[in-house]
Each structure stands twice: as structure tokens, then as C-alpha cells.
């Protein structure tokens, strides 16, 4: 674990000098988590990829401001989340209706019913249920339950009041609970 940290630190040193190989290596290590974070907010492959990659680029640009108070992954994730929210708002403005939200996704789970895949299956089921929630419920719950932010942080990220944030999350939880019970 500490070795892995050291390696990342060494890589970041190189990234500060604009070393392209080190930057690609950082990308390889973090892209999956960052892509999924963006995807959970944006629900679209291409936009999630775009936001994720742009976030890496801006992270490299302002890497000198990263002082290591938090883990690099957490710092990067915050950039991804902020950019995802920004992109989500732009998407709302354009009033685009995602194809996925119209056509109900039909997935065949039969091939992944082995035991070790059980928690993965469960995760997918929960995430699919999350996707059925209203956008602001989905996003606030994602930030709260998955990314682990507290109310204060979420209200600043989503630009809503603290009280509003609390209510939204509690209603979102209620809604998710109901939907999970139905689907079970």
C-alpha cells in the first residue's frame, strides 16, 4: 500500500514536469474510477468520457496546487465531480433527452449469476434502480452514499442550500428504498 503511494507520488513529481509517460500512467491508474464517477452523474458514455478526460487534463495543469492534504485520487475525484455537475447543467440547458432514458434498457443477467459475481450483480441492480430516480435525487444520493461527501459539501457542489440538501437526500433515500423493495 505504501509502496503504491510512493509510486504515485513519484509519478506526480514527473507529471509536474509535464512528463507524458507519467501522465499516461496516472491516467491508466485512475481512469476507471473517474469514468464511473462521471458516468453515475451524467449517465452517458461519451459525455462521461469527455468530462473524465478533461478533468485529467485540468488536474495536470493545476497539479502544482495539489498539496497532498488528501489522497490524489480524492483530489482528482473532486475535479471530476465538479466538472460532471457543470456538464450536467449544460446538458439540462440544452434540454437533451438521453436515448437511454426513453428506451428501457434490457439487460440479460443470466451470464453473471455465479457466486463471486453476486455483489457485482447486486451493485448493478442498485445502480439501475438509482438511475430511475429523478436527476437531483440520483446525483445527491450518489455524492452522499457513494462518493462519501457530507451535506455541507454536497450543498456547495450542487449549489443548493444546506436545508434543501438535507431534504433532497432524505427524500431521495426514501424513494430509492421504495424502488428497491419493489424490484426485489
Amino acid at each position: 500500500m505504501s509502496l503504491k503511494n510512493e509510486n504515485t507520488d513519484a509519478l506526480l513529481e514527473l507529471c509536474l514536469k509535464n512528463d507524458q509517460c507519467a501522465q499516461m500512467e496516472i491516467y491508466n491508474r485512475y481512469f476507471k474510477a473517474m469514468y464511473n464517477t462521471a458516468f453515475r452523474i451524467l449517465k452517458k458514455n461519451d459525455e462521461a468520457e469527455d468530462v473524465m478526460q478533461e478533468s485529467f487534463l485540468s488536474a495536470f495543469t493545476k497539479l502544482h496546487t495539489f498539496k497532498g492534504e488528501v489522497a490524489f485520487g480524492a483530489w482528482l475525484k473532486r475535479i471530476v465531480i465538479n466538472n460532471s455537475i457543470k456538464s450536467y447543467r449544460a446538458q439540462q440547458k440544452k434540454n437533451e433527452v438521453a436515448l437511454e432514458s426513453i428506451i428501457h434498457k434490457v439487460k440479460d443477467y443470466d451470464e453473471v449469476t455465479s457466486d463471486h459475481a453476486f455483489s457485482e450483480l447486486k451493485a448493478q441492480k442498485v445502480m439501475e434502480t438509482m438511475e430511475q430516480l429523478r436527476d437531483n435525487y440520483r446525483i445527491s444520493l450518489t455524492l452522499h452514499l457513494i462518493e462519501g461527501f457530507d451535506y455541507e459539501e454536497i450543498s456547495s457542489i450542487m449549489n443548493i442550500s444546506y436545508a434543501n440538501c438535507r431534504t433532497t437526500i432524505s427524500r431521495a433515500k426514501e424513494s430509492l428504498r421504495r424502488k428497491l423493495q419493489i424490484s426485489q
Binding site: 469514468y35 464511473n36 458514455n45 462521461a48 447486486k122 451493485a123 448493478q124 442498485v126 445502480m127
Partner: peptide, 12 residues
């Protein structure tokens, strides 16, 4: 419980 398994999407 499911935290570890949440990152199951892959970019194109």
C-alpha cells in the same frame, strides 16, 4: 457492501 463493485462501467 456494494461499494467495491460500483465501478463496473468501462469507457468506450
Amino acid at each position: 457492501e456494494i461499494r467495491e463493485s460500483l465501478d463496473y462501467h468501462e469507457p468506450d
